[in-house]
């Protein structure tokens, strides 16, 4: 017997889709902002000797990416690529990855800060409502879940017939959502705030715990990369675990249970 269960509350679904759009805009406008100073230093002030990443164009038609002192030719993608106006030019991230496509720091900042509010409010409303309703407690990874992480991974890798017993969320889901929603998302917000001189003036410790302004810029970028990694795994899971059913449940709330499947997501 298959039956429909109401899996996601309206607020959760709204927060998910507002968050998804906001994150897409934040990444593309963030790359636009990065392009204005396409390097990251592990220091407070700009310090070339502590440069972790730089993307530049040493000569016309050549793009170069340097990570921890190791240079790679990345022509056509990083350093030299689409200028967003139909041509090519020296650009850290290419036009097809940035908002707007052409180089415009002022507009990139407008997009980034506008959608930072949307992402933050979506995150906060989800956090408060799921904490109040008690769903948050089911989702948080606990020490008692740790020994179930590998059995769950083994099940996904088809090394094990059955998943370990778990509640609404399996141990890997708990680990992923706890890390992304309760650790990574707030860290990305805080490292972003730490970049602002006005915020730094009222909260020196915020900037300094991340190692200073340039270091905060590096953490903000690394946080983005980790988030992109999560999104890739997340989309893969949705594609492979019954795409239409998953999409319906995040749009209408209703999920069709498969045989032997527990009620939770």
């Amino acid at each position: 017997m298959q039956r429909l269960v109401y899996r996601y509350a309206l607020l959760t679904r709204l927060a998910h889709w507002f968050g998804a759009i906001a994150v897409a805009v934040l990444i593309s406008s963030g790359l636009q902002i990065f392009n204005a100073a396409p390097y990251l230093d592990a220091a407070d002030r700009s310090t070339p000797t502590r440069r972790v990443l730089s993307i530049d164009s040493p000569a016309d038609g050549i793009g170069r990416t340097t990570i921890f002192g190791h240079s790679f030719t990345t022509t056509g993608f990083l350093g030299w690529g689409s200028d967003g106006n139909g041509g090519e030019g020296a650009r850290a991230f290419p036009g097809w990855l940035t908002i707007p496509a052409y180089q415009d720091l002022a507009d990139g900042r407008r997009w980034h800060f506008f959608f930072a509010w949307i992402a933050s409010l979506a995150w906060l409303s989800w956090l408060v409502s799921s904490a109040v309703k008690g769903n948050l407690a089911e989702m948080i990874l606990r020490p008692s879940d740790l020994h179930k992480l590998w059995p769950m991974q083994a099940y996904y890798l088809r090394l094990r017939r059955d998943p370990p017993p778990h509640g609404s969320y399996n141990p890997l889901q708990k680990a992923a959502y706890t890390f992304v929603l309760l650790v990574l998302a707030p860290l990305i917000l805080l490292t972003g705030l730490a970049l602002s001189p006005g915020i730094d003036a009222i909260a020196h410790p915020l900037t300094m715990i991340f190692g200073g302004r340039q270091f905060a810029r590096l953490w903000h970028f690394v946080g983005m990369l980790l988030f992109v990694g999560f999104v890739c795994v997340h989309i893969f899971q949705v594609l492979t675990q019954g795409f239409f059913n998953q999409m319906r449940s995040m749009i209408s709330g209703w999920y069709r249970l498969r045989e032997h499947e527990s009620v939770g997501p």
């Binding site: 902002i33 204005a36 100073a37 002030r45 720091l105 001189p197 302004r213 340039q214 810029r217």
Partner: peptide
């Protein structure tokens, strides 16, 4: 003090 450029770099 630290000078924070809108482009992203900083100098003291």
């Amino acid at each position: 003090t630290r000078h924070d450029c809108v482009e992203g770099w900083s100098a003291i």
